[in-house]
Amino acid sequence: MLTFDIRRPSTGQQFDNQSLQEILLTARLGHLQMGDEIRVSGTQEWMPMFPSRAAGMASQFPQPTPVIPGSATPASPGGHLASDPGHVEAAMPAEAAPEITAEGTAEVRGPRPPQPEPTFLVCCHDGEDGPYTLCQVEALHEDGILPGDCLLKQVNRPEAGWQPPTTFGVDLPMRFLVKWPGGHRIEGPYTARTIAAMTRKGELIGRCLFAPEDRPDCWRPHPDGHVPMGHWETKQAVASYQSRKGTWSITGGA
């Protein structure tokens, strides 16, 4: 069986004859870090586990909690490994993992080039914008910039044409208008998530009324007389609002 040696030049630690399975498990547990090197056992050529490009990407993600050797805390689900080359500073990007070929043999290839995140042009009823990632589309909807009925066209697949966001797995959440007591001030539309955040900051008061953005004549107070923070925040609550479109009631929810 093909085995590998891994080492950490910064500490001088080295673990020889590791199976691919062991290395993958070590990587999954986050026990590898930038600067670690790997080679096929019996050969002399060390290769970096993480190419510099991956190092740049890793800096954009939260770092895992350091592992306490021997512990079985959630931060180190497997506890200490015999092959543990040390504590965790960075998780191993998937693209740097050795691959198993179709024949079932392990083979260390160069890192797969990272796939760029797809971007989309956005078409609203009166113009186009973009390109944006799907996350940005969601954020722009949440900020009130993009309407829920916008269409998306993938930049590198224009032949697919304009499609609703759901085609790409994005379900833009329902939004609500907020009317302040007296009716002179109407804000929104806000998603339930934004309403929850505004409530936390004390930006909404209990006597506000709410209406779905596509039913601005259908104002409802919350029956409890205050903005129910937990109610707005749960995904279940949002779903219940959507299911009640038509006979909308703010009393629905989790």
Binding site: G127, E128, D129, G130, Y132, Q136, L140, D143, G144, I145, L177, K179, G183, H184, R185, I186, E187, G188, P189, Y190
Partner: peptide, 21 residues
């Protein structure tokens, strides 16, 4: 305009959530 975007929106009309009524 969104930083990174291309379209200019009417600030009074669109981006301003507050004071619609």
């Amino acid at each position: 305009r969104v930083v990174g975007g291309t379209r200019w929106y009417d600030a009074m009309d669109l981006a301003i959530h507050g004071i619609r009524g």
